[in-house]
Simulated scan of single mutants.
Amino acid sequence: MPNRSEVITPALLRRWALPVPTGGKEARGTVLVVGGSRFTPGAVLLAGVAALRAGAGVLQLAAAESTAAALSIQVPEALVVGLPETGDGAVAGRPGDPLDGLVADADVVAVGPGLTDIDATGELLRGVLDAAPKQTALVLDAYALGALSHAPDLLVGSGRPVVLTPNLTEATHLLGRDPGDDLDAEAAELARRYDAVVSLYGHIAAPDGRCWREESGDAGLGTSGSGDVRAGLLAGLLSRGAEPAQAACWAAFAHAVSGQRLVPRFGRIGFLARELLDEIPHTLATV
């Protein structure tokens, strides 16, 4: 039987309202973004700022050492830690302290934005999983998904709250084949195989068989850095206390509608990923 997915609408999201934490920033959680390279620090910046715009209370960035000073200036709201690099400028495999301490204390860890070396990313991902308490939510994106495809049982049976955010290329690696036209079914297959919530181009699936789809996304979202924004948006919603499937549905909707809000100013395909960031709070607030 084909998977029957529910369309994500404002009415659905209002019935599935996000937690509204009270108190200080600690009540909205700590997001740690692990990623970047000497040549791709912007991915970490986009994901981190998106997490804050989605409501995270505390932001920490762990990126290639050569980019840390610039990131700390560009994102003054964040604690920024430089990680050892390979000769090619990629983040090295198992940095150890201080990354292990940051992972252990974070509520959400997003791994992948801007990473560039698949082998080093595999070591880094294992290090994060070793250091993260079982209740820590994880968002795996970009090269972290490639690393996961090389170790498909890494999350199975772990009981961890995890969301995977593949694009079609990354879905190909995770599936071991080209995705078919039915992305609802492909997302469901990935969710079952990897025991995680999957958000594939607005098609969301949980391991228990529940499926949703977001239908308002347009071509403009297919722009450099857009996936980093989506990953950070997800992390921020998880940090506020949303459960993985809920966060994935809200993030897919907020990502798409934030793009719609930019169309009158920039056209369907003229806006930049960084311009999505300022639209996120208003989009979430007006559901």
Score class of each variant (00 low, 15 high):
6 E>I: 10
11 A>Q: 14
16 W>E: 13
18 L>T: 09
21 P>S: 08
23 G>I: 14
24 G>Y: 06
30 T>C: 13
30 T>F: 02
32 L>E: 08
35 G>C: 12
37 S>M: 01
45 L>N: 03
49 V>C: 07
52 L>W: 01
54 A>Q: 05
56 A>P: 00
58 V>N: 03
58 V>D: 00
64 A>R: 09
69 A>Q: 14
71 L>H: 06
75 V>S: 08
85 E>N: 09
85 E>D: 10
85 E>Q: 15
87 G>M: 03
87 G>E: 15
90 A>F: 07
92 A>F: 07
99 L>G: 06
108 V>T: 07
108 V>Q: 03
110 A>S: 12
117 D>C: 10
121 T>I: 10
126 R>F: 05
128 V>N: 03
130 D>Q: 15
135 Q>G: 12
139 V>H: 05
140 L>K: 09
152 P>N: 11
155 L>P: 02
164 L>E: 11
167 N>H: 15
169 T>Y: 01
170 E>K: 05
175 L>F: 08
179 P>E: 03
179 P>N: 05
181 D>E: 15
183 L>S: 02
185 A>Q: 13
186 E>D: 15
193 R>I: 01
193 R>F: 03
201 Y>M: 09
203 H>P: 00
212 W>P: 13
221 L>T: 00
226 S>P: 00
229 V>W: 00
234 L>H: 11
235 A>F: 05
245 A>F: 09
259 G>F: 00
261 R>L: 14
271 F>Y: 15
278 D>R: 11
285 A>E: 15
285 A>Y: 06
